[in-house]
């Protein structure tokens, strides 16, 4: 697509905004018409106003953001790095890939308490939890992408006596980019979940920690605001990844996920 906004793009983004506003409207009506008690479901404006309460919103949002982004960044580096290693060394691939598949089956959330025992609690621990939940999908999809090379294409460049490195740089790596991004998009959601789990189990700051704190006083509005903020951090990360994908992956090659 060329520079500037096409009518189709404008329409799509208008639809995105409208759908979200519709949800807020339904929420508003449900509270007003249904006369739901405030501690069960706070109205949209009460939720928004909770930002002016004395809770350290900014600090907690920064902590959670650091955990999500940190864990996610680690997951991308380690996931893609290991996948490259697997594709270069077949023995490593044969030995470790089955292990990776088993590891993927572990409900990583259940590891949270253990990780806290090992790393003590705090931001760094929650980064580790976010990382451990989100790196496997990146590793698995990247490894798959690196394997998906058209055999005839390899034959074609082999007649030209292409080196292994040329095949990797010119064909394998660019060909795997759509897969890497598909894994990265899945991993965003998981990194967010990982940070939240860490904060729930043991932590002294962060938005999920705040949820635990205000739950005691039944401040539903603040709880909902915290959920919204966590979601926004996740959406921001997702949009960054999406933008990056648009920059490096040609439209036709993109793998559609969510």
């Amino acid at each position: 697509m060329g520079p500037g906004l096409s009518a189709q793009t404008i329409w799509r983004w208008t639809a995105v905004v409208l759908v979200h506003l519709a949800v807020v409207l339904v929420w508003y009506l449900a509270v007003k018409v249904g006369e739901v008690p405030k501690f069960v479901l706070a109205s949209p404006e009460e939720t928004l106003l909770s930002l002016f309460d004395t809770y350290p919103w900014f600090h907690n949002t920064m902590v959670t953001t650091a955990e999500i982004f940190g864990g996610y960044f680690l997951a991308v580096v380690v996931g893609v790095g290991l996948a490259l290693l697997f594709s270069w060394f077949h023995t490593v691939d044969n030995l470790l890939m089955p292990l990776v598949v088993s590891l993927n089956m572990i409900p990583k959330v259940a590891l949270g308490p253990l990780i806290i025992v090992w790393f003590d609690y705090g931001i760094q621990t929650n980064i580790v939890i976010a990382f451990s939940i989100s790196f496997l999908p990146i590793l698995i999809t990247t490894a798959r992408g690196l394997r998906e090379v058209e055999p005839d294409l390899v034959d074609l460049v082999r007649t030209l006596r292409a080196t292994q490195w040329q095949i990797f740089v010119k064909i394998q790596l660019p060909g795997s980019l759509p897969y890497i991004f598909s894994g990265m998009k899945v991993a965003v959601v998981l990194a967010v979940a990982g940070a939240v789990v860490g904060e729930f189990i043991a932590s002294d700051s962060g938005l999920a920690y705040l949820i635990g704190q205000v739950q005691v006083t039944l401040d539903t509005a603040a709880m909902m605001m915290a959920v919204i903020l966590i979601t926004l951090v996740g959406v921001a990360l997702y949009l960054i990844v999406l933008g990056l994908e648009r920059l490096v992956v040609v439209r036709d090659a993109r793998v559609e996920t969510v």
């Binding site: 005839d152 074609l156 992956v249 090659a253």
Partner: peptide, 11 residues
């Protein structure tokens, strides 16, 4: 060489 599939690099 030319194969049955064009095998062009999509990117």
């Amino acid at each position: 060489m030319v194969f049955q599939q064009p095998l062009l690099l999509k990117w």
